[in-house]
């Protein structure tokens, strides 16, 4: 098995892909947002309950590739209890990490996605859930997509 491949599909990612956490709808959620990459087939919906500016609880449902599912699953763990500003900082750090391999700040467990940058076609899978949560926090109602062109 090549090193690049085990960088992409780290054990943590394979685990979250097979056993996604917080994988259900959230009763009484205050906010939700959809992410859809129709060309890929990645589709997910995030649900948030808020306590003021802070995410009290978060969950997701959907289907897609291993990278997109694991990314959403790990995002729900990382974002729970965080404020909007903290999530925005995480978004910036994760975005930079999956495109360059270097995180711009503290990303904790999300560091497992650093290997994605070697697979340019898969960046949009890793970042989809992050665009969805930004959209949910802004209160946008349109589904987001991270696809800009056909593969």
């Amino acid at each position: 098995m090549s090193d690049d491949l085990s960088d992409l599909y780290q054990q943590v990612i394979l685990d979250h892909c097979k056993h996604p956490r917080n994988f259900h709808e959230l009763a009484g959620h205050h906010r939700s947002a959809e992410g859809h990459n129709p060309l890929c087939g990645d589709q997910l919906k995030l649900f948030l309950t808020m306590n003021g500016d802070r995410i009290q609880d978060i969950s997701f449902v959907g289907s897609g590739c291993c990278i997109s599912k694991a990314s959403a699953s790990l995002l729900t763990e990382a974002a729970k209890g965080k404020t909007r500003a903290e999530v925005e900082r995480m978004f910036e750090a994760v975005h930079q990490m999956v495109t360059t391999g270097q995180a711009a700040g503290e990303v904790g467990k999300l560091a497992v996605f650093a290997g994605v940058h070697k697979f340019p076609a898969r960046v949009k899978c890793a970042i989809l859930a992050w665009h969805a949560i930004m959209s949910a926090l802004k209160g946008d109602t349109q589904p987001v997509s991270t696809e800009t062109e056909d593969m």
Binding site: L8, Y9, C40, G41, G64, C65, C66, I67, A121, R122
Partner: peptide, 9 residues
């Protein structure tokens, strides 16, 4: 296994 995971591996 999603088709894109199959193709990537």
């Amino acid at each position: 296994v999603h088709a894109h995971d199959v193709v990537t591996v």
